[in-house]
């Protein structure tokens, strides 16, 4: 349905509009005049060779890196001028490339800290672990296959489980845009299948941007694919379209 090349539609509401985005580090343009648009309920996968600027794009959207030029509009809010935690409050969640979880704490506590309640200093001091909290944690833990591990210190989870936990930590915030940097890295084949299923379930009410190298997985989940090369969009469209694009073939074979 959605798997059509990005074409000139009538003006419509996108969840995310990235326009003319540029960032340079000491003169090197990691992202160069980049524009792309993400739809409601879309899974967009960004692929590209190493150094193409994929992670930098996510860094720019979530405010970790400041753009030199260009704009990032998310539901009519300009993200380039907001602080990181404000961007999260606006509804953007981000998973890091290496599973980034609180290893000293249990799965339960990891999820609890991610609940969007008591986010101020005094809010956190007064936060109570009530029934609503328990129910929400249980719901999300079940979703990311960790319900039987709630009391497990997260340090001893398998690599794949850590990835799921971090996805769960995003989900519990109920973001309308989720950005996942290599969510299946280090996962077994079985875990990858489950993760693809998981992602297809969570887009019911949100959009997802995924960076991934595993082409099989990309084919399983992508509605549209954006190929980045040297900070620019090389090609965009369905997986089928992108795979047969001579420019893409050249870049990948050239490496």
């Amino acid at each position: 349905m959605n798997a059509l090349p990005a074409t000139e539609h009538a003006p419509k509401e996108f969840v995310l509009e990235v326009e003319a985005l540029t960032v340079s580090f000491d003169g090197f343009k990691a992202v160069d005049d980049l524009s792309f648009y993400v739809d409601e309920n879309e899974i967009r996968v960004i692929i590209g060779p190493n150094g193409a600027g994929k992670t930098t794009v996510l860094d720019l959207i979530c405010g970790r890196t400041k753009a030199s030029h260009g704009s990032i509009r998310f539901r009519d809010r300009e993200l380039t001028r907001m602080k990181e935690h404000e961007i999260v409050h606006a509804g953007v969640g981000r998973k890091f490339q290496n599973p980034t979880i609180y290893e000293e704490l249990t799965v339960f506590e990891n999820l609890e800290l991610s609940i969007p309640r008591g986010r101020t200093v005094f809010g956190a001091l007064g936060f109570r672990r009530d029934q609503a909290v328990l129910d929400r944690i249980e719901e999300i833990a079940e979703f990311v296959f960790l319900k039987d591990h709630l009391k497990t210190p997260s340090a001893i989870l398998s690599h794949g489980q850590k990835q799921w936990l971090e996805i769960g930590m995003l989900l519990i915030q109920d973001p309308s845009l989720m950005m996942l940097d290599e969510p299946v890295a280090g996962m077994s084949v079985g875990e990858r299948v489950k993760t693809a299923e998981l992602l297809n379930n969570i887009i019911k009410d949100r959009s997802v941007i995924v960076i991934e190298h595993d082409m099989k997985f990309v084919e399983d989940i992508a509605h549209r694919v954006t190929v980045l090369h040297q900070g620019k969009v090389l090609s965009e469209g369905s997986m089928e379209h992108v795979k047969n694009d001579p420019k893409v073939v050249e870049v990948y074979l050239g490496h």
């Binding site: 970790r64 999260v88 969640g93 609180y102 800290l113 008591g118 956190a124 001091l125 971090e166």
Partner: peptide, 25 residues
């Protein structure tokens, strides 16, 4: 034992994760 107590441990270990979970670290 408050949530703040667990948050500061999280900040010590994974500051960015806390920041990108919507907290003003």
């Amino acid at each position: 034992v408050s949530k703040l107590g667990r948050l500061v441990i999280a900040i010590r270990d994974k500051e960015d994760r806390v920041r990108f979970s919507g907290y003003d670290v």
